[in-house]
Design a protein around this nucleic acid. Structure first.
Lengths: 350, 350
DNA sequence: CTGAAAGCGCTTACAG
DNA sequence: CTGAAAGCGCTTACAG
C-alpha cells in the first residue's frame, strides 16, 4: 500500500513536498512536482477520499446465496431485494456455489466494500471459519444467516421450519392411510446432516413409519433420480407414497411412475417439499408444501435493518433471534389413499 | 467534529479504550463500553471508512432486471454475476418490475452510487427518458441494454435472436406438415410491439401461414391462458400446432389439452419459446427453443468490461455493438405431424 | 521552494 | 481490563 511517506522516500523529497504536489500547491518546483506525480502514478498512490463515504454513500447490504440459477435461492433473493428496495438500500449479490471458500471470499470482499449488513445463505455443511465471523463483528457488519450450517456462532437466523414441514408432509400422507412412505432427496454424506432429511426422519419415526425407504439421489443427475424412483416403485414391499426433496424431483418421479404404467395418485401418492409455480400446472398437479422462500429473504432483511436501527450505527450485541417461517401445504391432485393391493409394474422386469 | 480523543477525554478513558469499544473488542468492561458508546452517540462520532482512498473501492456494476422471481431474468442475472465475479466486480441488483419509472429510479441511484457500468433489462415498452440516458454518459457510466425497448438511443446491446427463434419454431412445425399454427403469449397493447410476437408474425407470414390464431394471454392469469387455449382447441378450423411464449404457458396448455381429452402430440403439437429445466420432465416433455439467457447476461458483462478497458478513464464514445444470442431447438415429445382429421373435443360443448 | 518538527486521528504491541 | 507509548498517514505552521 502506497503512502505519501513512501513516495517521498523514493522521490528523495520530504512528505510535505509530496503533499503539496498532490494538492496543487504553487510553491513546488515544476520538475519536483513532475517527478513526484510520476511516482504517484507508478506506485498507484491514491489520495484519501475527502468525503467520508460511510455516511454519504447509499447504504448497501450484501447477500450471499448459492446460485441465482437455483429457484429457491432466486426466490430468497427476491424477498431480499424487495425489502431492501423499499427501504432504499442497495444489495450486492454474490454466489457461494455451495462452497464454503466462496462464501469466505464473498464475506471478505463485502467487508472491504463496507456494506452495512450481510444476508448469508451458504448452503454448505461446513461452517465458515471463526476468523471470518469475528471479522464481521469487528467491522460492525450485521450478519443474518438463512440456514443452520453456514455459521455455528450464535447469530440472528431466519429459516424455513423443516420440522413443521416434515410433520405436515408425513401426517398428511398418514391420514390418507399410508404406512410405508418413501423419501427421495440428497442425504448427508458426512456427519453434518442437512435439515430436511433429518426432519423427515424424525417425523417418520414419530409415526412409527420405517425410514428404510429414505433414498439418496443428488439433484444434478436426473438419471440417478429415475434409477432410485424405479427401485422404490419396483420393490414389492415398497412405499405407497413418496415425499420428494423438491417439486422438481416430484416432476421426475411422476414422469417415471407414469412411464412404468402406474397412475398418480391411484397407485402411488406423491408429495413435494417445495412449491414452485409450475407444481400446479403438472399432470397431475403436485401436492406440495410451500416454504415461502421470499419470506425468508424479506424477513431476514427486516431483522437486519432492525438491528442496524437498534445499533444506530454503533456496535452492540443483542441476543440473537431465530425466526422460523411456517410452511403451508397446498392440496392438489397427487395424493390419495393407498391402493387396496399394491401394484408392481410389469415394466420393472425389463 | 468528534474524534476518538475527544470522546476519550469526556469519558475519562484513554483513546485506546474508545477504539476498542468501537471495534467490539471483548477486552472492555461492559460498563465502560456502555458509557463510551453513549457519548459516541451523543457527540455523533462517526467511524472513518476503512477504505480511505476512493479509487481502491471494489469496482461495482449495476444490474436492472424486471424481477429475480422471473426465471428468465434469474438466468440472465446468473450470467451477469458469473462474469462479474470472475472479473472481481461487485453487482448491485435492482428490480424494475416491468415499470419504466422503477428503471429510472434505479438508474438514478446507481449513478449516485457511482457504479462503473450498468446492465439494463427493463422489460417495458416505454424507453427511458433521454435525460436519464444522457446522465449515464455524462457520469462516464457504461450502459449495456438487454432488450429492444428500454433505450432508444444507439447503445450497446445483447439480446436473444427473436427472429432466428421464430423462424426455427415455425419451420420446425411447418416441416411436420402443420399449416394452421397458433401462438399464445402477451401481445402488444400499444404501438410498441414486443419482439417475440412480431418475430413470430413475420415467420408465419414468410411461410404463408395465417396469423389469425395469434392469441393474447397475460402470463399472470392462468385462467386467461386456459380460456384462450380452449378457444384455440375448440375452434373447428383451429390450429394443429401451438407455439407458446414460454414453456410455462406450454405446461398450462398441455394440461388443458389433456383435460379436454386430446393427446399431445397426436392431436395437437406444442412448441415453447423458452426452455426451463422442467420442460424435459413434463409429460410429454415439451419441445422448446432454448434462448440461453445466461449467455445474454454473461456476454453483456463481457462487452461492458471491454468498454471499460477501452475507455480506461478517458471519455470516448465507440460505435455501439449489438450481439444476438443464437437459439437452439430442443426436440422432445410434444411435436408430431398433424392428425389426418382434426378432432374437436366433446368437452368443448360444456 | 523546501523540509524538520509538531500535531491530529487512528491503531497496535506491550506492560501492568 | 486498561493505558502509556510508539507508530502510521496525513496536514500545517514555521524556519530557513
Amino acid at each position: 500500500m502506497s503512502s505519501i511517506r513512501k513516495i517521498a522516500q523514493i522521490a528523495g523529497v520530504s512528505p510535505t513536498t509530496v503533499f503539496r504536489a498532490l494538492h496543487n500547491d504553487p510553491h513546488v518546483l515544476p520538475e519536483t512536482r513532475q517527478r513526484v506525480l510520476e511516482l504517484v502514478k507508478l506506485y498507484e498512490y491514491k489520495m484519501p477520499s475527502a468525503v467520508q463515504p460511510h455516511q454519504s454513500a447509499i447504504p448497501t447490504l450484501g447477500c450471499i446465496i448459492p446460485s441465482v440459477g437455483n429457484s429457491y435461492c432466486a426466490r430468497v433473493l427476491q424477498g431480499v431485494l424487495e425489502v431492501a428496495f423499499a427501504e432504499s438500500y442497495h444489495v450486492i449479490t454474490l454466489e457461494s456455489h455451495f462452497n464454503v471458500l466462496h462464501t469466505c471470499k464473498a464475506l471478505q470482499t463485502l467487508v472491504e466494500q463496507r456494506v452495512q449488513g450481510i444476508v448469508i445463505l451458504g448452503g454448505h455443511y461446513e461452517p465458515i471459519p471463526r476468523a471470518s465471523a469475528l471479522e464481521l463483528w469487528s467491522s460492525n457488519i450485521v450478519p443474518v444467516v438463512l440456514d443452520a450450517t453456514t455459521m455455528d456462532a450464535s447469530v440472528d437466523r431466519v429459516h424455513i421450519d423443516e420440522h413443521a414441514m416434515a410433520r405436515m408432509a408425513v401426517d398428511y400422507l398418514w391420514d390418507f392411510g399410508h404406512r410405508v412412505i418413501g423419501y427421495l432427496g440428497p442425504l448427508p454424506n458426512g456427519k453434518n446432516a442437512p435439515g430436511r432429511p433429518r426432519a423427515i426422519k424424525h417425523a417418520l419415526e414419530a409415526r412409527g413409519v420405517s425410514t428404510k425407504y429414505m433414498m439418496n439421489a443428488m439433484p444434478s443427475t436426473v438419471e440417478e433420480i429415475v434409477e432410485v424412483t424405479r427401485t422404490l416403485l419396483c420393490d414389492p414391499h415398497g412405499p405407497t407414497a413418496i415425499i420428494t426433496q423438491t417439486d422438481g424431483y416430484g416432476a421426475i418421479v411422476t414422469r417415471e411412475a407414469v412411464r412404468l404404467g402406474l397412475r398418480v395418485p391411484e397407485d402411488i401418492s406423491l408429495l413435494a417439499c417445495l412449491n414452485s409455480w409450475f407444481s400446479s400446472h403438472l399432470l397431475p398437479a403436485i401436492t406440495a408444501v410451500e416454504q415461502y422462500p421470499e419470506k425468508v429473504g424479506s424477513q431476514a432483511v427486516e431483522l437486519l435493518l432492525r438491528r442496524l436501527r437498534e445499533g444506530d450505527g454503533l456496535p452492540h450485541r443483542p441476543e440473537p433471534e431465530t425466526i422460523a417461517i411456517a410452511p403451508v401445504l397446498y392440496e392438489r391432485e397427487s395424493c390419495a389413499p393407498p391402493p387396496a393391493v399394491r401394484h408392481v409394474p410389469t415394466a420393472c422386469n425389463v
